[in-house]
Simulated scan of single mutants.
Amino acid sequence: MFGKIRAWSQRRRMLVDVLWVTPLIALCAALATTYTQSPANAPVDLVGYLLLSTALLVPLFWRNSHPRSVFALVSLTSFGQWLAGVDAFPANSAVLVAMYAMASRCRFRWALAAGLVSELGIFLALSHWDTVSLGMFLSCSFFVIMIWLTGIYANTRQRYLEGLEERAERAERERDQQARMAAAAERARIARELHDVVAHNVSVIIVQADGASFAIDSDPDQARQAVHAISKTGREALAEMRRLVGVLRDDPAGTAPDAADYTPQPGLAQLEDLVRGSGLPVDLRVTGTPHELSEGEQLAVYRLVQEALTNTLKHGGPGARATVEMEYGMRELVVRVTDDGRGAAAPLSEGGHGLLGMRERVSMYGGAVQAAPRPGGGFEVLARLPVAA
């Protein structure tokens, strides 16, 4: 129940602020006639009372969104009231409300400044009274300090709850990531098994087919047996492939596969979209005459750039920029991804296989990858991929 109330208050923050200030407005309105007609107070008419009360109370509607501005405005208004010789009245409690907002939402140095200004305001307000005493000042100061400490506690608790929520979200992301990594490892194992099954059965089929081709004239029965063996082996291989591919297509929960699993793999045509959606400022530069690359080669280049930009985003630090350069030469395609972040100084994360994956993808097509810190700072990933003449 409290969670629902908190969520509702977060969605309608302005309305909640108005509701909190409404009782104070009602109290000031109810005491307007009593205050202005009392001979003990400094001379002020009803209109001046209402105008001054409005100037003090209306800014409180924005105390949570702009706590420092509201506190400064309310404090300066109260100070001007003191300079004009007008005694304190109920609307001056807006200073304490604004001080609480400062203590509960701003850093400690701002909260401390708000508390000291409020204490000064108490002293100035009591200085108009002839009967003021040290005990009265201490009593008022105790009241102010209690409000200030309550705001500090609310601020600390809010930061603590935000920390808990952040840790919970991070733990959830790490759990999902571990689950995806486990699923990917299992799928890789199944893919290797599929490769072994296909390679073995195709080898058997080739051997039987060669035997049948030699024996078809001299020994028809043996050729017939070889053809039957080819048929049997082909059916078994096809059934095994269907079983393994079905496992690869289905997700771990057994539900229908995602539509994204059947979309074409990205290539160089999607490289600009990757750069724009990388989450950091990236310059893409392409020089030379583009070559015709196979889908596999395009995918390897795409994944290399994606992994390099991901490493920059993770380890480059705030404000890091990256540059993606693709240079088409006569015999090779050079892909260079550089950044000016602190990736070279960042600690190595455990279990990372990004660079290894880059090298494996590019080496499939006879290329090579180098990754190292830059002399002037930052990190560089350089890949050379040979292209057909």
Rank of each mutant, 00 (worst) to 15 (best):
S203I: 00
V204Q: 12
V204Y: 06
I205C: 12
I206V: 12
Q208V: 01
A209M: 09
A209N: 05
A209D: 01
G211Q: 09
G211W: 08
G211S: 10
A212L: 04
A212W: 03
A212K: 02
A212H: 03
S213E: 11
A215W: 03
A215Q: 09
I216W: 09
I216P: 00
S218L: 08
D219H: 10
D219E: 10
D219C: 02
P220S: 01
P220D: 01
D221M: 07
A223R: 04
A223H: 06
A223E: 02
R224F: 11
Q225W: 09
Q225E: 12
A226S: 11
A226F: 13
A226L: 13
A226Q: 13
A226V: 00
V227M: 15
V227C: 13
H228L: 14
A229Y: 03
A229D: 12
A229Q: 13
I230N: 05
S231P: 00
K232I: 14
K232R: 14
G234N: 10
G234Y: 15
E236I: 09
L238W: 11
A239W: 02
A239P: 03
M241S: 13
M241W: 04
R242I: 06
R242H: 14
R242C: 10
R243E: 15
R243C: 07
R243M: 12
V247W: 04
L248C: 08
R249T: 12
D250S: 15
D250L: 15
A253K: 04
A253L: 11
A253I: 02
A253C: 07
A253T: 08
T255P: 01
A256S: 13
D258R: 15
D258P: 12
A259G: 06
A259D: 14
A259M: 07
A260S: 15
D261W: 09
D261P: 06
P264R: 02
P264H: 03
P266V: 05
Q270C: 05
Q270L: 13
Q270W: 07
E272F: 01
E272L: 11
D273S: 14
L274R: 02
V275C: 14
R276M: 03
G277P: 02
S278I: 07
S278R: 05
G279F: 11
G279W: 06
L280Y: 05
P281K: 00
V282Q: 04
V286L: 10
V286W: 02
T287C: 05
T287N: 06
T287L: 02
T287K: 06
T287A: 09
T289C: 03
P290C: 03
P290L: 04
E292Q: 11
L293G: 04
E295Y: 01
G296Y: 01
E297M: 14
E297V: 13
E297H: 00
E297N: 02
L299W: 12
L299H: 11
L299I: 07
A300D: 14
A300M: 10
V301A: 09
V301Q: 08
V301W: 00
Y302W: 13
Y302Q: 03
R303F: 07
R303V: 14
L304Y: 02
L304F: 10
V305Y: 03
V305I: 07
Q306C: 05
Q306P: 01
E307L: 14
E307G: 14
E307M: 08
A308P: 00
A308M: 00
T312E: 05
T312H: 04
L313G: 01
L313E: 00
L313H: 01
K314P: 00
P318G: 00
G319H: 03
A320Q: 04
R321A: 01
